[in-house]
Nucleic acid binder design. Structure first.
Lengths: 289, 289
DNA sequence: GCTCGTTACGAGCTGCGTAAGAATT
DNA sequence: AATTCTTACGCAGCTCGTAACGAGC
């Protein structure tokens, strides 16, 4: 059985190209690396290096071994973190999402639940959701699509519905709902991290300008002292950073189909029983408007 | 970084259930395993075991860790063998197949080639072909189907064509070719290891009996001293074990479409240049009949 | 009384750093 | 002269086995 430290040295060498730099990178001395690579060749019974008095390079086999070792070391590292993640998941149920809105609702219900619930501070791309669950980094992922694999399942929770907050004197405010088309050409204040909603508004509203704000505090400041319209959803009300106490705007739901996003809860089938009460709570507190 | 010997102990324990049996299986003493599992828990910073004075069992985390460790150790082991296989493949070009016929032809051309060619003695199931190539256990796999992946490609070589060898006085022998339907209800001597041909004849010939022979010597003996029909192909002529010097049977090709099998050579795209002359030789020596 | 798990102690292995040397640029 | 790789030597750390002990069936 090959010792991991030898594989690490091989991987490091394949990147640095010399034993000296490898040693430096691994915080050991050159003789250590020399002996290590000799031992690795000996253990494998294979020539990995071409040696000249002053220069050492990988053979084709050596390059291949380094490639395999890189992957193996990554998995080796993943072992520890996954075990720790699993252990942690035994005690606290971690919720994350691929959109910020559902995360806010989750944070809300976490406060009213006695169970050990943890809600992540940020959301992840949808294509990482499966990985988050299988590696036990999250027990519950709130997604805009169903995830179906042999070990995963998804349940529908509700819809996140987009609305726009318009100055009350704008003519578009003279109706109970608006359409994307009616917002054409306007300038909006938008928070940077709104997930898929960003693609939606950019795609659906023609010739609009979006004034993206990285800091929630800046967003709140500018909304308060300007008349720019901004977006909100039935879930964003739970955001403590964006709540604007004195707002002389009116909230107008957008009635396009693209302004509604179904939200699913995805989890490991093995965790079905554990997440059940959480799903019930999420559905119970889902705002209807 | 977790030491492999600790993971091995964990894997062994998950199978045996006690430290004593684990120690016995690994040829070490009980205290070694005790300390090992303590160190593993310490290194991971996670409780893997429930301990009672006289009994130790895995926690849920422990079971999960053992599961992950099992997979990791398998990959760890695969590392050495794959590096050695790659190194070996640098020097000798190994040919294998998913059918015995092409293997015989390959063995034939290997004798007439100066290059370092090795031909395996047995063939493998088609679903292992991709694995054999990517792990460098074989450089060339002769298959009855094309294999298409980002790293693999296949080239058509020729057809293996089934024929039946009938006693010259049988009425079916009074024609240049026969059909599967005409062989209905007969009894055939068949070698055990004929790959996919077995499914073909069982499916295509109604109510036939197949007298499967494990030993080629028995097959030869019985064919010589009996009148049972047996099968051959345009490639099986290269089989030294089956050649029957005094055969009072006549060879009749089967003209059904199912009696012809296209044969492809599959290999890593990276090996394209290396296999090129071998493919040329295989096509050049492919028998036409 | 037998089996199982844990702890203590000493021995042996092995991987490391230091030091020195040889070859190349 | 500076850099790179290799070899030799002694030490430190770690894993192992032996021995002894405690707890349960």
């Amino acid at each position: 059985m090959i010792e991991p430290y030898l594989l690490e040295e091989l991987v490091a060498f394949s990147r640095t190209g010399t034993l000296a730099k490898t040693a430096q990178q691994l915080h050991v001395t050159q003789p250590t690396v020399t002996r290590g690579m000799q031992k690795l060749e000996d253990d494998l019974g294979v020539q990995l290096f071409d040696r000249q008095p002053n220069r050492i390079t990988l053979t084709a086999t050596g390059r291949h071994a380094a490639e395999l070792a890189t992957r193996l070391m990554a998995q080796h590292q993943a072992f520890s973190t996954q075990v720790q993640a699993f252990d942690h998941a035994q005690r606290v149920l971690t919720i994350t999402a691929t959109l910020p809105g559902p995360l806010l609702l989750a944070r809300q219900i976490a406060q009213h639940t006695d169970q050990a619930l943890s809600v992540t501070t940020t959301f992840s791309p949808i294509d990482q959701a499966t990985d988050l669950l299988t590696t036990h980094q999250a027990t519950l992922v709130l997604t805009q699509r169903e995830l179906q694999t042999p070990t995963l399942e998804s349940r529908y929770l509700g819809r996140e519905k987009l609305a726009v907050n318009l100055d009350q004197f704008m003519y578009q405010a003279n109706q109970t709902t608006v359409t994307f088309a009616e917002l054409r050409g306007m300038s909006f204040l938008v928070l940077q991290d709104i997930g898929s909603w960003r693609e939606v508004i950019q795609r659906e509203i023609p010739q609009a300008k979006f004034l993206y704000q990285t800091q929630p505090s800046a967003f709140r400041e500018i909304t308060t002292y300007s008349d720019f319209p901004y977006f909100s959803t039935n879930l964003s009300r739970f955001d403590p950073h964006v709540a604007t106490p004195t707002d002389h705007r009116v909230r107008r739901p957008i009635r396009d189909a693209a302004a509604q996003m179904p939200i699913y809860a995805s989890y490991l089938k093995a965790d079905r029983q554990r997440v059940k009460p959480v799903l019930a709570a999420l559905r119970a507190h889902w705002p209807d408007d």
